[in-house]
Nucleic acid binder design. Structure first.
Length: 529
RNA sequence: GCGGGUGUAGCUCAGUGGUAGAGCGUCACGUUGCCAACGUGAAUGUCGUGGGUUCAAAUCCCAUCACCCGCUCCA
């Protein structure tokens, strides 16, 4: 069992609050479910993560499978778009799932997943070709055959339950198609026996769960002005694909990338920031020739997995999981594959939670928008060399910035019960650490504060540096341990005479002396620019 | 949305109807000679919120909000 499974999420959340990494949004008003703010340390940490992504994805991505450099261009699209975007992408249909609750069993179902089969009085059913339906039995079975098989296994019990629920011996109207619960009207919904229920009529009316946030553009609030907050940043990229081809001097294969907020009105936000209703995505859409999907899918899967390792999630807590065919999205059924980079969070352990999904989305989105906007095949990509026309396929690595930040926080969190000072150390890789180094005068007199201040001013142009002269040195080290600051430089009584300072290492608490004028090069070596 | 639990200072918690508390932390001053040191002092509370019962509510009742756990959901 890995170390992270023994970490306490409560302690991590407490440290995040105490040190100013993450707070509840609008906390003074009692908060708001599913929304989180980043404090000073958290905002810097998340920015460092996004900067690392921007650097490694847009500026210097590793060479492609053919050894050539990649061309990836950034865009920054709006959160509110023409609502037709979301009709074409399938979100208006797909994100509105009517739900049904069962008052008896306390279970919740998607209304369109429940099939209802008519039930008739046994006597009536024997005597008449078209007997009167006296109720329905609901099942989660997808097909009539599956339903038939499921109750055949214990037929006696099944009909006993029905007889009890309907107050008389009954027959089920088979063969015949099951009717989705959503298609039942009015009174019929009151005579349905829910799955696993013993009483009739315990299912509620279907209720719409709008997973997209709605808003209105302009002064008038009517259907015409309705718009949505984007549930993913990807569609902005797809809708600007043609402008990028026309202006950015790119040719297939190339990528578009953006970082931005997205919104999903989740049914149950849970697990700290893991499932937030407002969150930030770091998305790449990499456009390719269809026949190269396999090699590019592999490239991105390996590249993205290695990237998460490079920012500190290097141990057993990180995993790469290929999706089974049956859990694939509508756009990815026939593709090179879909996989998730997953992290074992304390609240998912021993399981994992998704950080990034890498999917071969085929040409679903470009085709959908080309069709929906009415231009169709005129919007096909033309290969400038062969003049061949086609809709490019897409490999989409889509990462969660907030989930990534949370994973980094969880991974860095290290209780240190044996250490003399700090109870906790946040072991961020230096590249992500919100504060790169701290500078302390050992005591607040004898010229030490002046030397510390001079060193601080020298370094702060290049690095995020803090200085602190208050309270005991142990307390100051401990605070920096919880902030995850990799190095502390301390000016002591010897500094004025021999021009050296001590360097304290966050992870070992060990100290070494280095020359005052070597501090900057020390940081450059350990932290990078 | 359902069921269960929780909510008092920044944190951990005590307080069963009668003056709002402790420890830690924070801040100031003093001290200091490398790991949450010490001394003195200070600030900090809509007792989650709203309503009700009562002469009197942190305490009893109702509603509501937030968080945690379990369902459910997560194209």
């Amino acid at each position: 069992m890995s170390a992270s499974t023994t970490k306490s999420m409560d302690e991590i959340v407490a440290l995040c609050r105490r040190r100013g990494f993450i707070w509840q949004s609008s906390e003074v008003y009692g908060g708001i479910n599913g929304f989180w703010d980043y404090g000073p340390l958290g905002a810097q940490l998340k920015k460092n993560l996004k900067d690392a992504w921007w650097q490694d994805v847009i500026k210097t991505p590793p060479a492609g499978p053919d050894g050539a450099d990649l061309d990836i261009v950034p865009v920054d699209c709006t959160i509110i778009m023409n609502p037709k975007v979301w009709e074409a992408s399938g979100h208006v249909g797909g994100f509105n799932d009517p739900m049904v609750d069962c008052a008896e069993t306390k279970k919740r179902y998607r209304a369109d997943h429940i099939s209802c089969y008519g039930v008739v009085d046994e006597k009536d059913g024997r005597e008449n070709a078209e007997p009167t339906t006296i109720g329905y039995v609901a099942t989660l079975a997808a097909t009539e055959e599956e339903f038939f098989t499921s109750y055949r296994e214990n037929e006696k019990k099944f009909f006993k339950r029905l007889a009890k629920a309907f107050g008389k011996p009954v027959m089920v109207q088979l063969p015949g198609e099951g009717v989705p619960y959503t298609n039942l009207q009015g009174f019929d919904r009151k005579i349905v026996l829910g799955p696993d229920a013993t009483e009739v009529g315990t299912l509620t009316e279907p209720r719409e769960f709008n997973l997209m946030f709605e808003t209105y553009v302009g002064a008038i609030r009517d259907e015409e002005s309705k718009a949505y907050l984007r549930p993913e940043t990807a569609q902005g990229i797809f809708t600007q694909f043609w402008n990028v081809v026309d202006t950015a001097r790119v040719k297939i294969p190339f990528g578009m990338a953006q970082i931005g907020k997205a919104f999903r009105n989740e049914v149950t936000p849970r697990n700290f920031t893991f499932r937030s209703r407002e969150f930030e995505q770091m998305e790449i859409e990499f456009f390719i020739r269809p026949e190269t999907a396999g090699e590019w899918y592999q490239y991105w899967r390996d590249t993205r997995y290695a990237w998460w390792q490079s920012i500190g999630l290097a141990g057993d807590n990180l995993t790469l999981r290929e999706h089974d065919k049956d859990e694939l999205s509508h756009y990815a059924k026939e593709g090179a594959g879909v996989c998730d980079v997953e992290y074992r969070f304390p609240f998912t352990a021993p399981g994992y939670g998704e950080l990034e999904g890498i999917a071969h989305r085929s040409d679903f989105d470009l085709k959908a928008h080309a069709t929906a906007c009415g231009k169709g095949d005129k919007l096909m990509y033309r290969d400038p060399v062969t003049n061949e026309k086609f809709f490019p396929h897409v490999i989409e690595p889509s990462a969660g910035a907030d989930r990534g930040t949370l994973a980094v926080l969880c991974e860095a969190f290290t209780p240190t019960p044996d250490r003399a000072g700090s109870k906790y150390v946040m072991k961020f890789v230096p590249r992500l650490a919100p504060i790169k180094a701290a500078i302390f005068p050992l005591v607040n007199k004898d010229g030490m504060p002046e030397i510390a201040d001079k060193l601080y001013r020298q370094l702060r142009n290049k690095y995020t540096i803090q200085t602190d002269a208050k309270q005991s040195i142990g307390k100051r080290y401990a605070r920096m341990d919880e902030a995850g600051t990799p190095y502390c430089f301390t000016i002591d009584g010897d500094t004025a005479t021999d021009q050296t300072v001590t360097v304290r290492d966050r992870d070992t608490a060990e100290q070494t002396r280095i020359s005052l004028d070597k501090v900057e090069s020390f940081l450059a070596e350990k932290i990078g620019d």
